[in-house]
């Protein structure tokens, strides 16, 4: 501290007449009682201020803040689960719609396929009927053609025999032509 002019009677065992310390002021026994007395008062006052007012207040504020934060987190958690529910519902609706669409498409496909099969069978039957008819016609034509060949051959044979100046009866010529045709 500043050096202040001290009165002569103040100069004691620890402070000289000029106001300077003699030795270490920390070791001056004259002052210890005073310091300890005021220190104890100070500590007791601080203790009661802290223990009765300040610390419970700060503890309650901290607890309240912790509670608020916890509540907020819980609310956020709630909202999040709601959002997740909504998302799940949406997903479900989407999946349902998709399966339904699949079902509808499948049904349409099946219907078409059935129609197609009926038509195909019908067409097949028609075609085979026509084919059989054609075959029959071809067979008839072929049979008539064979018959015509036989007649032509017999006539030709008779004509050739006549041209050769020979006469042969009809039965012989027919038998020879038949033999040739079979052979």
């Amino acid at each position: 501290m500043a050096v202040e002019p001290y009165q002569e009677e103040l100069a004691g065992t620890c402070v000289d007449a000029g106001g300077s310390a003699i030795g270490m002021p920390q070791l001056c026994g004259d002052w210890v009682g005073n310091q300890v007395f005021w220190l104890i008062i100070t500590l007791v006052v601080i203790y009661f201020i802290l223990a009765r007012v300040a610390l419970p207040r700060i503890a309650s504020v901290l607890a309240e803040r912790q509670g608020t934060i916890t509540n907020d987190i819980a609310a956020a958690e709630d909202l999040k689960s709601k959002a997740q529910d909504a998302e799940a519902a949406y997903d479900k609706a989407l999946a349902d719609a998709r399966t339904e669409a699949h079902a509808i498409a499948q049904r349409a496909r099946d219907d078409i396929k059935a129609d197609l099969d009926v038509e195909k069978a019908h067409a097949d039957a028609e075609i085979s009927a026509k084919a059989a008819e054609s075959q029959k016609a071809i067979d008839a034509i072929r049979a008539s053609a064979l018959e015509n060949v036989e007649i032509v051959a017999k006539d030709t044979a008779a004509a050739i025999v006549a041209a050769l100046g020979m006469s042969a009866d009809e039965a012989k010529i027919n038998a020879a032509v038949d033999r040739q045709l079979k052979g």
Partner: peptide, 10 residues
């Protein structure tokens, strides 16, 4: 030098 004067109780 009076380094210890600051510690005087008065």
């Amino acid at each position: 030098f009076h380094p210890m004067d600051q510690f005087i109780v008065k």
